[in-house]
Design a protein around this nucleic acid. Structure first.
Lengths: 187, 187
DNA sequence: GTCTATAGTTTGATAGAC
DNA sequence: GTCTATCAAACTATAGAC
């Protein structure tokens, strides 16, 4: 039942924006009255909290495993970037909840924040596996991909103006951190 | 009087977030009652619209002129990036209004949008002046800088975790588009 | 668990006196 | 131009019947 409510909440968020979600709209979508939601969630922010945790948990679940990723460092990097780009661009409301401070007075609980950290650690691990150890390098990579996602959502929603730049951005980054070019062996 | 109201609105936005601005809070700050604001603005969204235009107009006004920028292409690029980074990071609420879809049901009017276009055209001109002509190159540059700004505001507000990466990011980009190196090599 | 009823608040906006 | 008074609506949340 909690899951049905959350599904409804995502649908509402997709239509009116993450900040436009109201208990009435969510309840109506599951065939309830608004107060009935309080049987399942103690507050509206608790719903946001569950959504936040769910979003990052889904990211973790959908993230390609090391075995699924290409062997070559650049291809590996590119696959991770492409996956996160597609995942993020697929749902603006979700992206805003996950990565922007869209809801005033909402701070994710430690429990909901856990999968977010898990996702970050998985990224750090992948990058360490191809020789990118410096935390600053990981930060730059994440900011680069995040910037493309942001631009895509804000300036060309539904298009591919920035999606087309992703592969090139990854190569630019790979050159900078000194990853071997495709076809070359690792140093 | 309109300007005083807008100043107050920026103050409120700085404290409660751009989405948390209420007419009551704005009015109180200028020593008015909420309905009195309707003498100066026809609606709340009209205030947002004026703020949007004001924010971009200030960006245009604060943007360094071509004469103020360094001669060398890389330094020129770096100066522009640093300027926009500092300008954006200085005010989260302003950045959210300018660059994110933070207010549902708000779309900037054509008039308010004009200085935004002006700012973009100025960037295009600067980049054309150093030989970066391809629109895709400009998009990548803007997304790169924007990603660092976003990350700074979202993940390390008040810090410099991503500000420290800016110069390096510019060099990475400059290498990619083939700008000549400065006399001094980066580490 | 879900409902009705309702409290209590906040909000954007309007009308009309001064 | 500013005020008071007020509207109409929306919202979160609680209480208590069934």
């Amino acid at each position: 039942m909690r899951l049905e409510i959350l599904d409804a909440a995502w649908e509402v968020a997709g239509e009116v924006g993450i900040g436009g979600v109201t208990l009435g709209a969510v309840a109506a979508r599951v065939g309830m009255q608004a107060p009935s939601l309080y049987t399942h969630f103690p507050s509206k922010n608790a719903i946001y909290d569950a959504m936040f945790g769910q979003a990052w948990a889904r990211a973790v679940a959908a993230m390609p495993t090391p075995e699924e990723l290409p062997e070559h460092p650049r291809e590996r990097l590119r696959a991770v970037a492409r996956w996160f780009f597609d995942f993020s661009v697929a749902d603006l409301a979700r992206f805003q909840l996950m990565n922007q401070r869209a809801i005033p007075d909402f701070t994710p609980s430690e429990e909901a924040y856990a999968p977010s950290l898990q996702c970050w650690r998985a990224l750090v691990e992948v990058m360490a596996g191809i020789g990118v150890q410096d935390p600053a390098d990981v930060d730059l990579y994440a900011a680069l991909v995040g910037g493309l996602i942001d631009s895509q959502l804000a300036n060309d929603p539904g298009g591919d103006r920035y999606a087309r730049l992703l592969d090139r951005a990854v190569h630019m980054y790979a050159d900078d951190v000194g990853l071997p070019a495709t076809g070359e062996e690792r140093p």
